[in-house]
Structures are given as structure tokens and as C-alpha cells.
Amino acid sequence: MERKIERYCVPGTVEEAVEAIAGKDATLFAGGTDLMVQTRSGKRPFTPLLVNISRIAGLGGISTDGDRVRLGALATISGIRTSALLKEKAGVLTEAADSFAGDQVRNKATVGGNICNASPAGDMIVPLLLLDAEVELASTAGRRMLPLCNFFTGPGKTRRERNELLTAIYFPIPPVGFAAGFRKFGTRPAMDISIVSVGVAATRDDAGWKNVRAAFGAVAPTPIRGTRTEAAIEKGGTAGEIARIAESEVSPISDVRASAWYRKELIRTLTERLHHDVFET
């Protein structure tokens, strides 16, 4: 448990951080809102090297970078929730952040942590999938970009290598005519792990909705894109048809929070409602 930590390291720069974790099995600490719970419960023991990345200069921040938006890995959920930039350019992130846990957790939890924790129910992941986000990974070998939709490999598992640090998330500034929505379902408005979550987005032009994105949380081993749902929306199917396609392309499990049957029911209902709210009004 805690006693097994042999070395604690607080890098001040990304370079120092990637140097510190090179060739090691490090535990990375940012906001700690998932990590501390998981280590205490024994679900994920600390490794001998604990690296606190929360003081790395420039690893936070929410800004535009040319035609892209950059979310620093350390941007907190509160920061996202209150960002005027995001509210204007990508309100779906504001919406998701608003249904994310409670204030104490939102103040500490980081977007990079939410992504690297790779929960199938991760609340920031679904809206970032809608925005075609990419993640930036740094190591001593340099930096590389990976599309977020290819980043996850299973519950708690990602394509981040042990010697890599997730440094930022980028997504193109959505064009004029962009619309998106996000819903999570639980018995509470926030402070709840999503039983399912659904997001849809698209850009309107004269001919109709283009670049449609649909994504689902907590219905597969990772948050997923719903490509058949996207195609159906683009073709202009009815909300009911689209919802049935969405239901057919998810493969949820039954657990203590809900049965697979109920998750499919919710995907259908929420997709239909979201389609109505985002594309029909």
C-alpha cells in the first residue's frame, strides 16, 4: 500500500517528468480523485515511484492554438465548467463538466486524469469524442498525437506507454453551424457514476447535418463512437429509427448499477431525446 512507495518525485517541467518515468513503472498523480480512491481500496496499488505531475508549468490551461482548442492535461473539471472559451466554442464540454461529481472533486480532478483513468463511464470522454479530440503524449523520445477514439483499449487501459505522459488534448474549433448535446443518466443530477451517457454532434449546412458524431459511455469496455448511429443521423432517419440503431450497436454488461437490458433501453430513449433536442429544435 502507501508504504511501498520508494521514491516521490515532483517534476517542474515535462522534460523532467518524462526523464523521471523513463524505463520505470511510475504512478502518476495529478488531481488524485481516482488514484487515491483506487490505491486505498487496493484496486490499483502504488508502484515504487510516485510522480506528482500537478506542479508542471504549462501543463494546465485552456486556450486556442491556431484553429484548435488546447486543453492542458491539468485543466480541472471546474476550469472547463467555467471557461468562457469553451462555453462559446464547445458548450457540450461545459454541459458534461456540470454533471461531473461535486465541486470538491471538480476542483481537483483533471481532464487528463479522467482520460487516462479510462473508465467506460468517464464523463469527459464522450463529449471529447464528439469533438474529434486528439491526445498529445510526451516521452524522452519526443511527442506524438493519437486520436482519442483510438486511445482506449479496455476498462482502465489505454495506448499510453509506461514511459509516456499525456500532456494535452486538442480538438478543432467547431465550425459555424456546429451543434452538440450530452446526457448522462443516474438517479442524481451529478455525484453519480453514469449508468449510461450519450452524446451527439454535427454541423449544419444547407444540405443538412454533416460530420455527425455519436458517442456512448458505460455501454462497452471503453467509451465508444457509434458509427452506424452517425450514418443514420447523416442520412436523416427518424429519431425512433436512429435510437433503435444506437441501441443495437452498444454491448453493455449487467452490474450492480444496472442490467444490460436497462442500459440498452436508456441508450434508445436518451438518443431519441438527444436527437430531438440537438437536431430538431
Binding site: 438517479t187 442524481r188 451529478a190 455525484m191 457514476i193
Partner: peptide
């Protein structure tokens, strides 16, 4: 309190859902 075959399946406030202020 979900008890399956004698085992408590949700021994945490994450999955044992008390009513909170917004509801």
C-alpha cells in the same frame, strides 16, 4: 444494500445511493 448469495455487492457510497441535496 445489494446482497447476492450472502455477499454485499455495493459496500460504498458510490453504489449505495443515499438521497443527496439536489434530489
Amino acid at each position: 444494500l445489494v446482497v447476492e448469495e450472502g455477499v454485499v455487492k455495493n459496500p460504498s457510497f458510490r453504489d449505495y445511493k443515499l438521497v443527496t441535496a439536489p434530489e
